[in-house]
Nucleic acid binder design. Structure first.
Lengths: 141, 141
DNA sequence: CAGATTGGTAAGATTCTCTGACAAATATGG
DNA sequence: CCATATTTGTCAGAGAATCTTACCAATCTG
């Protein structure tokens, strides 16, 4: 049976999601999936709540709810945005950066597994095809 | 910036998800995303609640909660499983099949859009790569 | 046939998300 | 430069989705 590519993408995406959250938990950080998904969107120099909400496609209230939790867990902090007195930047704490590091490591590991399984050519073709697809599927590109 | 393939998959997958749910709503069926995701796993001849829960990676209680809603909306029905008196099969009603039809139509349309955007070769390579990836990412394959 | 397993339900709590309303800071158009 | 609109974020309350624990009935297994 030929599955729709979107289903295949979902399967692979969920695999990554699961592996990353597992690794983060094994490292002793008790993150929920919703928290992890939001945290994954926090930029290097901090992000505004509104931007996080837009990227994650949730309301800013929901994003605020999750940031509150991450803040209580000591993984992120809110600092004033020097560019706009209304806004605050959500950015990782030292402890939060440890979580990021764990996640990045697993992601790189999975990348290696995929490249090995597919071979360099097919892997490159996959990456390239997905990138091209983004042009017609990403509302923020 | 080279995004992780899983992120690219997530973007494309969410695009499909959004389009399908929109179309179903436009057709006059008021489904939530969670209901739609579960319904998408109901097989042609009906599926057991336990199987639905396992595939969707939620508890059977959560699956039952969603099936209750779909049942109340007249989209699915529970019939005794002739093979096992403990079990019941969740299957689409006539009305439910209309929803399935709408969803299938949108999925085919998106497939055409992707094939046109990528060209036949790159599209085939994408499908092939994703299928191969499933071998190491699908816990149910 | 006795115990273990499987399919499903019940009750209650928690997590996640939404809508609506609001305050403060900023941007914009006369 | 001021009045108005927009942007950024919060608060309060409600609904949706999920989980854990406990349980019953049917089936499988040794």
């Amino acid at each position: 049976m030929e599955l729709h590519p979107a289903v295949l993408m979902f399967i692979a995406g969920r695999h990554v999601e699961t592996r990353v959250v597992e690794a983060v938990r094994d490292a002793g950080f008790d993150l929920t999936l919703a928290q992890a998904k939001l945290a994954a969107r926090i930029g290097e120099h901090g992000s505004r709540l509104t931007d996080l909400a837009e990227q994650a496609q949730i309301t800013k209230q929901s994003a605020g709810f999750l940031v509150d939790q991450l803040e209580r867990a000591g993984l992120v902090e809110r600092v004033p945005d020097p560019a706009d007195a209304r806004a605050r930047l959500v950015r990782f704490t030292e402890r939060g950066l440890q979580v990021v590091s764990v996640a990045r490591t697993v992601e790189r590991q999975i990348l290696r597994e995929w490249r090995r399984h597919l071979g360099p050519e097919r892997f490159a073709a996959l990456q390239e095809g997905l990138t091209a697809l983004r042009e017609i599927t990403d509302p923020y590109a």
